[in-house]
Design a binder for these strands. Structure first.
Length: 176
DNA sequence: TAAGTGATCTCT
DNA sequence: GAGATCACTTAA
């Protein structure tokens, strides 16, 4: 393994959700499947932050599905939707504060459901820590992301959240 | 542009 | 229990 690459610790995720989202751009998502290791650069993320965020699953309170969002920073929140797609999120912030970052795209994979398919991410990872022992983790390999390369836009597919929350610029895109 | 697909949430 | 919804993708 490259000397410069380092695995992000749980602490990385225990910060303001928007900062974590932005800082995840340029980091590598790494997946171990048996003997094979897949990795790719994270290029698109969205923040879902707090109780009031009407676009977030958490805004109606804790349910069986969104329970991991209320957990500690640095665990996965994986859920199934549209009858066929898994979504990958990483939980941020303090325990009992519901927040997470949705990984929407990688350099060679666009679309949140396609990346979970390619990386074989499913509910088994739900609630597991973002670390090597889970077989899925995030590494900093020294990619420098300048402010000019970051585009900030409203989130996708959340029009139902009403004018205020649907327009929040909580989506970050890394354009290299 | 719309169908597919099924878990989950929100009422009865 | 029933009905609606859904942080999407693909095919046309």
């Amino acid at each position: 393994m490259d000397k410069k690459s380092k695995i992000l610790p749980a602490d990385f995720f225990n910060r303001d959700t928007l900062k974590v989202a932005r800082d995840l751009l340029g980091k590598f998502l790494v997946r171990k499947i048996g003997r094979r290791v897949l990795s790719d650069v994270i290029t698109e993320v969205e923040a879902y932050d707090g109780f009031d965020d009407r676009a977030s699953h958490s805004h109606r309170g804790m349910t069986k599905r969104n329970e991991p969002m209320f957990g500690e920073a640095g665990i996965f929140y994986v859920y199934f939707t549209y009858g066929m797609h898994f979504m990958l999120n990483i939980v941020t912030g303090e325990k009992d504060y519901p927040a997470a970052v949705l990984i929407r795209g990688l350099q060679h994979v666009s679309g949140p459901a396609r990346l979970t398919k390619k990386f074989r991410i499913d509910k088994k990872l739900n609630g597991l820590p973002v670390s090597k022992k889970s077989g899925l983790w995030v590494e900093d390999r020294g990619v420098v992301v300048s402010k000019k390369q970051i585009k900030q836009t409203p989130r996708i597919g959340v029009l139902y959240a009403g004018p205020v929350w649907a327009k929040k610029p909580y989506r970050f895109v890394f354009e290299s």
